[in-house]
Nucleic acid binder design. Structure first.
Length: 294
DNA sequence: CCCCAGTCCTGCGGGC
DNA sequence: TGCCCGCAGGACTGGG
């Protein structure tokens, strides 16, 4: 499930497209069901054809290709989308094939098993409207405690649910929200408006630490094997997960209690009831020593 | 405005 | 053995 580290790994993995000219766009017949193209396929193809890719970027969990004409191609992998320069896992779910000239790679593929992903060609104005600061918060890789507190400090939502709000902070999904709160030693159900300044510091520090470490390991490839880098290789951060997907296993941080699973907003949340206790004094004590150790 | 439930989609694993 | 159902969670929509 591509979140910030996986999309950043995709972005780095497709660096060879920079400088390339788009000489053809193909929507393979093998794609049983077309995914969302915006504008509609014919128009998107016409507007992208002949353009050069001048830079790559990332907007939260989206991969961005900046085109020579000023427009951007924004690829949103959602659950199962992959950005590939190599052969895809299966031919069946290739949604977009871009043929390139003048660079180190001859093609770029967007593969998406479930077809929830999107591909959008947007003008500068559309980009700002859709991915500007009104809709996308500061990037989670460099988010500060002040930014989090300004955006969420008065919210009564559970902190784990709030961290998934892309308008508040961009790039965190279900998996990394759990890992970040574990490192910050904060209970996922804690209301935002009851978090202290040191706790926001702990969350911001944990976000930067966990996400950069996950990038270093090229993201998380879960048991379903969906996430792959640009060369169709698995990441390894799943081997470093402390809580996600580990319900019932002993907590490797405290060595004692087993990891719990609860449901918040119809999504699984994993945490350690001991390290991330709901009790006030305990958490305050732990958070002063917690985040710096990572 | 704030927040939650429902929706899309495919593949997999549990239960019977 | 085979089928069915629930679950996985990105972002978005509609409504309280």
């Amino acid at each position: 499930m591509p979140e910030l580290p996986e999309v950043e790994t995709m972005r780095r993995g497709v660096a060879a497209v920079v400088g390339a000219r788009i000489v053809d766009l193909i929507r393979p017949r093998s794609a049983l069901r077309p995914i969302l193209f915006a504008p509609r396929w014919d128009r998107l193809k016409r507007r992208a054809l002949g353009q050069s890719i001048v830079a790559t970027g990332r907007a939260g969990k989206r991969l961005v290709f900046e085109l020579s004409g000023g427009n951007r191609l924004v690829i949103e992998p959602r659950m199962t989308g992959l950005a590939l320069l190599s052969d895809p896992p299966t031919d069946e779910h290739v949604r977009l094939r871009m043929m390139l000239a003048g660079a180190a790679t001859r093609q770029f593929l967007f593969w998406d098993r479930r077809g929830l992903g999107t591909v959008r060609l947007v003008s500068p104005a559309e980009y700002l409207a859709r991915y500007g600061p009104d809709h996308l918060g500061p990037d989670a890789l460099s988010v500060t405690a002040d930014q989090l507190r300004t955006r969420l400090g008065r919210s009564r939502r559970a902190v784990k649910v709030a961290l998934l709000d892309q308008r508040a902070v961009a790039g965190i999904g279900n998996l990394y929200a759990a890992e970040i709160l574990h490192v910050a030693r904060i209970h996922p159900a804690r209301p935002c408006d009851r978090l202290t300044a040191p706790q926001w510091q702990a969350i911001a520090a944990a976000a930067r630490a966990v996400l950069s470490e996950a990038i270093r390991h090229e993201g998380s490839t879960l048991a379903d094997g969906t996430y792959r880098n640009a060369l169709n290789q698995a990441g390894s951060y799943q081997n470093h997960h402390l809580v996600y997907g580990r319900a019932g296993s002993p907590c490797s941080t405290c060595g004692g209690e087993s990891i719990a699973r609860i449901v918040q907003s119809q999504r699984s949340t994993f945490f350690c009831p001991a390290c991330q206790a709901a009790g006030r004094r305990r958490r305050r004590k732990l958070c002063t020593t917690g985040p710096d150790t990572v």
